[in-house]
Amino acid sequence: MTTADRNSSGLTPHEARARFRDGLKVPTAGWCSGWTQANLIAVPRDLAYDMLLFAQRNPAPCPVLDATEPGETSSAIFDGDLRTDLPGYCVYERGQLVAEVDSVRDYWRDDLVAFLVGCSFTFEDALLEAGVPVRHIEAGTNVPMYRTSRPCRPAGRISGPLVVSMRPIPADLVATAVRVTSRYPAVHGAPVHVGDPKALGIRDIGRPDFGDPVQIRPGELPVFWACGVTPQAAVMQSRPPFAIGHAPGMMAVTDARDSSYLVP
């Protein structure tokens, strides 16, 4: 599985979404340079307030960029079809993953409220421009993601653990990575942890819960950012009757610009 095919970084969101709609299933790191990517979580209307409150109480992993009216399949920042225009989806019933599909048209319901949550892929171009390597892009794989032992603050019927993404960073560039990503608070911002994964309850850094493992080379430190897969981990723990999420690493490519989320 490769992260990006030739010229994918230069595609527009419309062009990328057309490829995904046609069945291309691929992680989206490195796609559509300069355009913001987002996590997707869709829940029934009677659970939407709890999910919104969960996001408000846990802004680092769950920064909401947009939300739809019940049943809507596009949004102000996503001029496509949320049911078909992502590379992959996860469908949950009572917290159990019941389907991994490339379209949820047959699963979509008129009462679903969809949330688009900021994604750390948004600041990866800025990291690369600052000379900070991004290993999963180099390797052509999905970013590694881990459930942690840190609980998120619960909200109503929604509770769950913090999920983090990890990028190995040379020790002398960690401060640069922190500085660069702290300027993108709407897409997870600065790291939540640097160094020993056991401090997050991660027992084996070589076995991510989502995504693919990456090599940590001598002189590098694992650096962890809050991750927008956190709402799906909350769905797994809270066991609502129904929910739809993106396949981890296979994001919604929006029509918003990365620069829109950059703060001075």
Rank of each mutant, 00 (worst) to 15 (best):
W108L: 08
S33G: 14
T12P: 00
R6P: 08
M251G: 13
N58C: 02
Y107C: 05
A186H: 13
D46G: 13
F210R: 13
V113A: 06
Q215P: 10
G160A: 10
V180T: 10
R83K: 10
G88A: 03
E100R: 07
V98Q: 01
K198N: 02
S74H: 13
G219H: 07
V143W: 01
D81C: 06
E72A: 15
D106L: 06
N58Y: 03
R147Y: 12
A29W: 07
P213D: 01
L86K: 04
A55I: 09
V26C: 06
S33Q: 14
A226W: 05
S149D: 15
L11E: 01
D22G: 02
E138C: 01
R150Y: 07
L221T: 01
V235D: 13
T36N: 07
R83V: 03
W31V: 05
A114E: 12
G160K: 10
D111Q: 11
G249L: 00
P231E: 01
D22V: 02
G189P: 09
F123I: 12
P151S: 13
V101A: 05
A226L: 04
R147N: 10
D209W: 02
E15D: 08
T2V: 09
C62I: 10
I77T: 11
T36M: 12
D196C: 04
A256D: 05
S9I: 04
V235K: 12
V174P: 11
T2C: 01
G140E: 02
V253K: 03
L116A: 05
Y184C: 00
P222D: 05
D102Y: 04
